[in-house]
């Protein structure tokens, strides 16, 4: 009848988190007879009676409503095939590509061509992880110039920060336009120096996100 871990402990797969029936298994955990175990490498957290583990690494799992950065890999009759930086490709249907009407005979490659990167929103995910994307929502667009960097997808919330505080800090200090995709791809556009500084700041957040005083560290780095 006891807890075997503390809040924010790093736990490994198979590590016992609690014994007895007082606690309930939450995200990334499971119960086997008397014990609750972690299923991933991550940070333990305890909310009331529920134990969960927040992954520190691992693949991105597509969710409806997520904004992701992805690449056009093919053009079909009905739209575009898109590489999502996951094990699953996605479809962007003609009707979901822009808010304007696309005529039947229009050349789709004039709208998006193979190799283009876009910011798009996930509008549907099936049980087999087939993904539908849309670019009709505000803020969705084709990415021109700049650079795209890839980070651990589990660090995306920390790069964004509370109410966008971290990303705003980096944008302002480096004078760089930044779009963060939930799939771990981040687009940066500014001067080469600004982009590099922003890139380094983001990687610093990625590395130090589990440590105390992160904002101060980043402020110091950017000053």
């Amino acid at each position: 009848m006891s807890l075997l871990t503390k809040e924010r402990d790093i736990v490994i797969p198979g590590e016992a988190l609690a014994e007895g029936m007082d606690y309930l298994p939450g995200e990334n955990t499971y119960r086997e007879s008397e014990k609750i175990y972690s299923k991933v490498l991550g940070l333990a957290s305890i909310t009331g009676r529920v134990l969960k583990v927040t992954s520190l690494s691992g693949p991105y799992i597509p969710r409806v409503g997520d904004k992701i950065i992805c690449k056009v890999t093919d053009i079909t009759f009905s739209g575009w095939r898109i590489d999502t930086n996951t094990a699953y490709s996605a479809m962007l249907n003609v009707k979901d590509a822009t808010a304007r009407f696309i005529r039947k005979e229009e050349d789709l490659s004039k709208i998006l061509s193979i190799g283009d990167y876009v910011v798009a929103m996930i509008v549907n995910v099936t049980s087999q992880n087939l993904i539908d994307l849309s670019m009709k929502e505000p803020g969705m667009h084709k990415l021109l110039g700049g650079r795209i960097i890839k980070i651990n997808t589990h660090k995306v919330p920390r790069v964004i920060g509370k109410q966008g505080s971290m990303i705003t800090l980096i944008k302002e200090r480096t004078q760089t336009e930044i779009t963060v995709g939930q799939n771990g791809l981040i687009w940066l556009k500014g001067t080469p120096e600004g982009e590099l500084k922003a890139e380094q700041a983001i990687h610093l957040v990625e590395e130090k996100s589990h440590l105390e005083g992160l904002t101060e560290k980043i402020q110091q780095f950017l000053s």
């Binding site: 990167y117 110039g145 700049g146 650079r147 795209i148 960097i149 890839k150 080469p192």
Partner: peptide
Amino acid sequence: MIIVNKETIAQL
């Protein structure tokens, strides 16, 4: 990892 188009590297 960084993704850029070739032109960016060439311009730099």
